[in-house]
Design a protein around this nucleic acid. Structure first.
Length: 684
DNA sequence: GGCATGTGTATTTTT
DNA sequence: TACACATGCC
């Protein structure tokens, strides 16, 4: 496309957003209004007006979104810009910037990054030290501690307030929790380790003071932010800091699609944008190009009942089309059956599987469907949910790499030592003390990896052979300047027998370690490999399988959260039952129920041509919190009354009425008599 | 008595 | 998977 021709593809509002020249800009973009396209065009427009690519900062929600946006902009301008524009998540960009400029804050550039499970493990280590795990009253679990901590940091709210508001059952432990947090923070500094929240905190600190901010601010002429509704207070502070350099801050978002409150995202960022960034221009995109009118009607119906929202009405230029279907199924098995049937029927009609998606609230909601798809040989890729990075053997491998990278990493040592036969938490602690893993202050200390080679007193005899293997493997990785892939290969020699002894499915797990080595072959440095893996973990099973293993056509399975920003011709939303959407974990207060409503809205608005919503009547593993229902579920409360009328309804189990009639004929109305009769029949 | 290991059970969403 | 709890080893 030529420079002028793509401008023609834009509607007036989009064009206004693209051509806006200087100063803050807020684009309120409804679902399917060409937000990604508009943002890509804006990037292209800025480049054509002479902005150099490396002076653009594009903050997106996932690395995937950044890549997508930049490749589109690249095509528009006819040049390769991906490697030069600063693009990625807040966290990934922070990682890069801090390695370049963190020193002025006293941050050594070779820090390692730890993910949320690591954070929880370090909390646990400290919890154990403080003796909080053996008291009468139970103390918050490590995941809860990590969640509290993260909320305090990301929302910028005092601990007592967070406890009172979000974790009231932990409020009595405020003192001890504070103590854990103080030690946790100190410990991270000693180890030269940053958690996710630190990345943002240090970035904010960097741009908060003119003296340290200057080299960062000097880098950028324009900052663009996607999915602004899902940013939190800390991220807004960072933008405010950046705005002291360039006032050209452009953000795009939709408050109706805010689904990350659990990560401390706040709609205040959108609502207060104009006050915070004085003179901001606001552009609204209301023309939907994605969905047919009936799908949009149903989606609008769901969101119209939201308590508070930015006024906006989506219009589509795609009239006609079929009504979305609401399919009541007998149970989950039948739901699977129906999904498969419709998937294949649409494929027969010419919609390939990869233009279709199955969406659900939580990762395990697709468990049964995955089995069924595999049984029927229907290829699929799953986004979100159970992740590669959470598998024990993957964590083991990474812990080994991290020890090599940072010999004072306590969490990794704690994990690695317990791999040895006969070593549990107690012996691991003793060994760590012996190795001097805990670094104190600035005093230079002997390298724990080197000390591992010496004599150790706390090694049980059963652990001796494996310890020798470990010593040899670590030494080999250090001796030659091996690349990260070769190091993983070497570590596999130590790991394979350990995996064999400890886990089932050892063959597949060892293959995963090989997969990890393969992944690492793209990186030149171990440190970069580790940082990239923690900041941008493989989002799907498909990311790892690589092109050769993937069929050319496959259906996408995704949590609704991971489906954000995506669109498919045919969308299947499963488990539309109360307790599923909304999740019964989130029905505590009105605010979280509202977020669940937006979640359903996001799911429905992913569909272009056809939308199916499935509702299983019965759950054998009963949805929690519905004990009174005798295993019968209720339709999601968001699909009530008027909204329901916007769907075409069908009860799938065609035999159900016939069955009931037959039963009635035998046992009379009311089924319990018939069940009793059936049981007696079984008893003989 | 302390510690490692075995068994049963419940489990949101993600950078 | 990871926790709580029970059991059994040194």
């Amino acid at each position: 496309m030529t420079a002028t021709s793509w401008i023609e593809t834009l509607n007036p509002a989009q064009r206004e957003a693209v051509k806006h020249s200087e100063g803050p800009l807020l684009v309120v973009a409804g679902a399917g209004t060409g937000k990604t396209w508009t943002l890509a065009c804006r990037v292209a427009h800025l480049l054509e007006r002479g902005t150099r690519p490396e002076r653009l900062l594009l903050l997106t929600f996932t690395r995937r979104a950044a890549r997508e946006m930049l490749s589109r902009a690249g095509r528009l301008t006819g040049r390769e810009i991906g490697g030069r524009v600063w693009g990625g998540t807040f966290h990934a960009v922070a990682n890069r910037l801090l390695r370049l400029h963190g020193r002025v804050l006293g941050l050594p550039p070779d820090f390692t990054v730890m993910d949320t499970p690591d954070t929880a493990d370090l909390m646990n280590l400290i919890r154990g030290e403080l003796g909080l795990d053996v008291r009468e009253r139970r103390f918050p679990r490590k995941e809860t501690l990590a969640a509290i901590y993260s909320r305090v940091v990301n929302a910028g709210t005092q601990l007592p307030d967070v406890l009172r508001h979000d974790f009231p059952w932990c409020a009595e432990e405020a003192g001890a929790i504070r103590e854990v947090f103080v030690r946790y923070a100190r410990r991270k500094r000693e180890q030269n380790v940053l958690d996710y929240d630190d990345l943002l905190l240090f970035w904010k600190a960097l741009v908060a003071v003119p003296a340290t901010a200057e080299p960062v601010l000097r880098r950028f002429d324009h900052v663009l932010v996607d999915e602004y509704q899902d940013t939190n207070a800390l991220q807004a502070d960072i933008l405010e800091g950046l705005a002291r350099g360039t006032r050209n801050i452009a953000v795009v978002g939709d408050d109706a699609q805010a689904i990350y409150a659990f990560r401390a995202a706040t709609n205040r960022n959108i609502l207060e944008f104009a006050e915070r960034f004085a003179g901001a221009r606001i552009v609204r995109l209301e023309q939907n190009y994605r969905s047919t009118q009936p799908i949009l009607d149903a989606s609008n119906g769901v969101i119209a009942r939201a308590a508070r929202r930015h006024e906006k009405t989506l219009r589509t230029d795609r009239p006609g089309g079929r009504r979305p279907m609401l399919l009541t199924c007998l149970d989950e098995a039948e739901q699977c059956d129906e999904v498969c049937r419709h998937l294949l029927a649409h494929r027969e009609e010419g919609v390939p599987l990869r233009r279709q998606a199955v969406l659900f609230r939580t990762g395990h909601h697709s468990d049964l469907l995955e089995i069924e798809l595999a049984r029927r040989n229907i290829p699929f890729v799953k986004y979100g949910g159970l992740k590669f990075m959470e598998a024990a053997h993957v964590k083991d491998t990474l812990a080994l790499l991290r020890i090599l990278e940072n010999p004072f990493d306590e969490v990794s040592w704690f994990r690695v030592l317990q791999l040895l036969d006969g070593v549990g938490p107690g012996r691991a602690r003793a060994l760590m003390a012996e190795l001097g893993v805990r670094r104190r202050g600035e005093v230079p200390q002997p390298d724990p990896v080197a000390r591992l080679a010496g004599a150790l007193t706390d090694v049980p005899p059963s652990a001796a052979p494996e310890l020798d293997e470990l010593r040899a493997a670590l030494a080999d990785c250090r001796a030659d300047r091996l690349g990260p892939a070769t190091q993983i290969d070497r570590l596999r020699g130590f790991l394979a027998p350990v995996i064999q002894r400890r886990y089932d499915g050892a063959v597949a797990r060892v293959r995963d370690v090989e997969q990890l080595a393969h992944l690492a072959s793209g990186s030149t440095s171990r440190g970069r490999f580790l940082a990239e893996l923690t900041l941008d973990p493989p989002a799907s099973t498909g990311d790892l399988a690589g092109p050769p293993l993937l069929d050319e056509d496959y259906v996408v399975l995704s949590t609704i959260h991971s489906a954000k920003g995506g669109e498919w011709d045919v969308v299947h939303v499963i488990h539309a039952a109360d307790g599923m959407i909304p999740s019964d974990m989130a029905t505590g207060d009105a605010e979280s129920v509202e977020e669940e409503r937006r979640l359903l809205y996001v799911a429905l608005t992913r569909a272009r041509d056809m939308l199916y919503v499935y509702f299983p009547l019965r759950y054998y593993r009963r949805p929690r919190g519905l004990e009174d229902g005798h295993g019968f579920a209720q339709l999601s409360r968001f699909l009530d009354g008027g909204v329901r009328a916007l769907f075409e309804e069908r009860t799938v189990h065609v035999d159900l009425e016939a069955t009931e009639a037959a039963v009635a004929a035998v046992a009379g109305p009311g089924t319990s008599a018939s069940v009793d009769e059936y049981l007696e029949g079984l008893f003989g």
